[in-house]
Design a protein around this nucleic acid. Structure first.
Lengths: 140, 140
DNA sequence: TGGCATAGGGATAATTTTATCCCATATGGA
DNA sequence: TCCATATGGGATAAAATTATCCCTATGCCA
């Protein structure tokens, strides 16, 4: 088990929410479960980029945070089903909004994200790209 | 400059959005700017937990991603003002929703988050806590 | 017997993100 | 001269997150 060394910042609601959604696949997992993809193996198939390990870990954190419930059927090939708790379900509007925003701005975002590998000093060029993209965004 | 080694996952809108908001202070920074806190020093004062360095870095990423624009006044204690771009502004409903959700569920979240330092194997106990908290949540 | 499916998790490496510390600019005031 | 203001960013350490690899369990099927 990993133990945090830096105190969590949870003074404002934003940080609390961020903490719950903090994990590469957590929003996607919650969304999958909300769409009735309940079994770990199904979820895994849904995200080819994710490892079984990571999904397990993130599912467990979501469970620990009370966003999902786990139901284990005592069978042998084991069967497990996750479902959203009430509070987990109440996150869906946010997650759907994030999904829609990303899709709606996909072309713009893909470009600026790729063009901004990370902080580099030629911020002028990214600005230009941004302006160009913004125009395309407003026109197209 | 830092260069990413693992390909970004940007297949679904969720991941695009996540990438833009990915940074400990980014949502909070955007929210501050939306509330007319424009100058870096003001923003810094707003978040005692943040370092000047991190804010600089995250502001620069937000700028690179086209969420904010930077206006530099050629003075000598320099003066800089950030403002939201149109697309940056369009994130505000999501950010506000995150903030409200976190605040609305604060007591529950604080408890489960603290009680789930990270993945530990006694998932039974966290479940119990969750159930207890859920009751308190529904009652109180 | 050998392999597949389903799920869980330990150990450790690699990657990414944050934190710390320090230097630079140029002007005004004590 | 020394300090404060305001902003930017390099270098490097520390911490947090993900990725890799591997082992467990057990019933079913060829």
């Amino acid at each position: 088990m990993y133990e945090r060394k830096t105190p969590l910042t949870i003074d404002c609601g934003l940080h609390l929410t961020k903490e719950v959604l903090n994990g590469k696949w957590k929003p996607a997992i919650l969304r999958a479960i909300s769409m009735d993809v309940k079994r770990p193996s199904e979820i895994l198939r849904l995200f080819p980029g994710a490892t079984r390990r990571v999904l397990n870990v993130q599912l467990k954190e979501l469970e620990g945070h009370g966003m999902v419930t786990k139901k284990t059927y005592p069978q042998m090939p084991p069967k497990v089903e996750y479902s959203l708790t009430e509070i987990g379900y109440s996150l869906m509007p946010i997650i759907e909004a994030m999904n829609q925003w990303g899709d709606a701005n996909r072309s713009f975002l893909e470009t600026v994200i790729k063009q901004t590998p990370k902080i580099n000093e030629t911020s002028k060029s990214t600005c230009l790209i941004y302006k160009r993209m913004k125009m395309a965004h407003e026109i197209g």
